[in-house]
Each structure stands twice: as structure tokens, then as C-alpha cells.
């Protein structure tokens, strides 16, 4: 474990807790894409198949349970909670799941480290996580208004993967044969997808104006 990865995990943890807290306290999911949340639940499910087979550390297991629990709770709130679901904007959140899931699945079947079920699922989860934010970014572009918590959520989510890139660079130089180009490429693509959001987020923060994304 290194400081970059710990900071990345904590940032990721805070991002999902910020979202869960927002939905739980104000009983609203306005501006949140259910599609993205469902994709994240799928990312964690396919990423953590080894949850009960390989024990790495207490930290690893606890964090996996938190990410799984929080992502499914968020999906449950938006789908089932009698008050929250009313604020879900299904007419705007129209990104088709299979436009994202199918290409990632095909890519995982073509490009992976080992052709085993767990390894292909794990690779699929990496590709899926890289693009899972797209429905949320599309929704933000459409609804234009970004409330603070949603802005913070997307910012923290992007920051976590940027910190992971520093972690991979650090591990590449400190651990022999630590080579995982699939992880690195997926992580870089993921962070680049947030790049324009980051730009507008900093602009709004610097000029102290409300965050607006160009149409």
C-alpha cells in the first residue's frame, strides 16, 4: 500500500458516501444518473468475484463490501425508495446500457491477461469502470444545472482514478515486474474522460460561479 493508493481509495470512498448521504438526507436523486450507478454496481460485482475466495487483507475485504453495499444501496434508493424515485429524471437519463456494456465485454474477451472466467470478468470491470461515468456526464450536460454535491461527487470520482495512476507509476518503479498495461490504459482513458469536467469544475471554483457545462 502506498500513499497514492490510500488517498485514491479514500477519495473513492468519500465520493460514494457523499452521494449516498445526499440521497439519504435530502431524499432526492436529482441530477444523478441511475444508469451510471447501475454500471458501477456491475463494475464492483465483476471486479470483486474473488471476495470470498481470495483473502488479501481486512482493509481490502472491508472496502470491497463498502463499495458493493453503497453502489447497490444507491441503485435501490433511486429505483425503489418511494420518495427518492420521484426525483429521478428518467426522460433525461436515457443512455443505453448495452452501448457501454457490450463493447466492454467484447473487448475483455479479445484483450485480457489470461482467458479464464474470473480474469475476463475482472478485465471487463476495468473497461466498464473507465466509461461508466458517461451516462452521468451526458445527464449533467443535458440538465445543465449541477448542484454542489453532484459536482463534488463527479470530481472526487475522477480524482480517485487520477491518484491511482500515481499509484501505478510508483509501484512500477518500486516493484519489479509490476506491469499491468491493461489496468493502466483503462485508468488513463477513465481519467481523460473527466478531464473536461475537471476543467469546468476548476473554472467555476476559481471564478466562484455556479458550475455550468457547455451544451
Amino acid at each position: 500500500m502506498n500513499i497514492f493508493r490510500l488517498a485514491g481509495d479514500m477519495t473513492h470512498l468519500v465520493s460514494v458516501l457523499v452521494l449516498l448521504l445526499k440521497i439519504h438526507t435530502i431524499k432526492s436523486c436529482a441530477g444523478i444518473s441511475l444508469k451510471t450507478q447501475e454500471l458501477y454496481a456491475l463494475v464492483f460485482t465483476t471486479r470483486y468475484l474473488d471476495l470470498f475466495t481470495d483473502y488479501i487483507s481486512l482493509y481490502n475485504t472491508v472496502m470491497k463490501l463498502i463499495f458493493l453495499g453503497s453502489s447497490f444501496s444507491i441503485v435501490w434508493y433511486i429505483r425503489r425508495h418511494k420518495i427518492v424515485r420521484r426525483s429521478y429524471d428518467k426522460d433525461q437519463d436515457t443512455f443505453r446500457h448495452y452501448f457501454i456494456v457490450l463493447p466492454c465485454l467484447v473487448l475483455a474477451l479479445l484483450i485480457h491477461h489470461k482467458f479464464t472466467f474470473k480474469e475476463v470478468m475482472w478485465t471487463f470491470s476495468l473497461y466498464l469502470e473507465a466509461v461508466a461515468i458517461l451516462p452521468q456526464l451526458v445527464l449533467l450536460q443535458r440538465t445543465r444545472n449541477i448542484d454542489n454535491l453532484t459536482g463534488q461527487y463527479v470530481f472526487l470520482l475522477g480524482a480517485y482514478r487520477a491518484l491511482y495512476i500515481l499509484n501505478w507509476i510508483y509501484r512500477h518503479y518500486t516493484e519489479p515486474h509490476y506491469v499491468h498495461w491493461i489496468t493502466w490504459i483503462a485508468g488513463i482513458v477513465q481519467t481523460l474522460l473527466y478531464a473536461d469536467f475537471f476543467y469546468y469544475y476548476f473554472q467555476s471554483w476559481k471564478n466562484n460561479v455556479k458550475l455550468q457545462l457547455p451544451a
Binding site: D54, I56, S57, M63, K64, H113, E119, N167
Partner: peptide, 10 residues
């Protein structure tokens, strides 16, 4: 064997 370590990441 070089795979195993990447699985220690979340």
C-alpha cells in the same frame, strides 16, 4: 504469478 499483486488493488 505477476497477476496476483494487481488483485490487491480495489
Amino acid at each position: 504469478q505477476f497477476h496476483e499483486d494487481v488483485k490487491d488493488e480495489l
